[in-house]
Design a binder for these strands. Structure first.
Lengths: 135, 135
DNA sequence: GCTTGACTTAAAGTTAACTCTAAGTTGTAG
DNA sequence: CTACAACTTAGAGTTAACTTTAAGTCAAGC
């Protein structure tokens, strides 16, 4: 199957201008053109773009994604380097998940704080009292 | 305890300029000043900044964080709205974690792809063969 | 043949979140 | 008293990732 930039944009939930911008930045050297200059996307191209989206959405800057794409063009000699990039990004994602879990705990605490304050009608119930002994 | 902007920057792993920028954007209306104009941070201020960092690091834009801070200044009348903001951000974080888990699966697949390609010395082992029957 | 919508480019504009610069003030140590 | 590091401001500059604009080309339907 062959697709136009507009169709690919719809499928990947990106704008056509964003895809053209990625192309300009060197992220899509594999996309072919008609004689008239119009881009022709194949299924494999969409697959590659899904990887690009994965890398982008896990925080890799476009220049580093370009570096990865450049390595794929080299061929089998760059397998090791590509694997290292994937491993590093994988570790980064694991760390991001852990960080988000930490933030979730903070938000859960604030949730409790405001739920109890709402019930009491005031945030004052959370004010620290000094010398509040109970026998 | 009281702290200077430099000390707070070190504790929160931010730059002093970033803290001044946050102040300029209205995120720190609670921080007091000496007569000379120098900011004086209390423990509670650092606590508030940790919440601000949590919101920022979970993707909330600074203008929305300012809105949240403005609500805290209103007092108890804004508890409900503040709770809603926290609940919404909490949901957003849960979603972000799910998305990252999806990306992790993609990266795990690519990890396998390159590990097996590395072992074989070529990515060709992953090439689809048409009509590969086995009796 | 002509309109229309989707494609093309180069280049300028936008936005968020800093980050830096310049010029000046403050407060402690010697 | 002076040096020096850390603080202050306003405002300019930076960067990434788009997004828009202007001017033009292409292909299908009437």
């Amino acid at each position: 199957m062959e697709y136009t930039i507009g169709e690919v944009a719809k499928v990947l939930n990106l704008s056509a201008s964003t895809l053209r911008y990625y192309d300009k930045e060197g992220l899509m050297p594999f996309v072919e053109r008609k004689a008239s200059g119009i881009r022709v996307f194949k299924n494999d191209d969409i697959g590659a773009l899904r990887i690009i989206e994965c890398l982008k959405n896990t925080g890799m800057p476009i220049k580093e994604i370009k570096r990865f794409i450049d390595l794929t063009l080299v061929g089998d000699d760059s397998i090791d380097e590509r694997l290292n990039i994937i491993l590093k990004q994988r570790e980064s994602v694991l760390q991001q998940i852990e960080e988000l879990k930490g933030h979730l705990a903070t938000l859960d605490h604030k949730k409790w704080y405001y739920e109890t304050a709402k019930e009491a009608g005031t945030c004052d119930i959370h004010k620290k009292k000094s010398k509040n002994y109970q026998i």
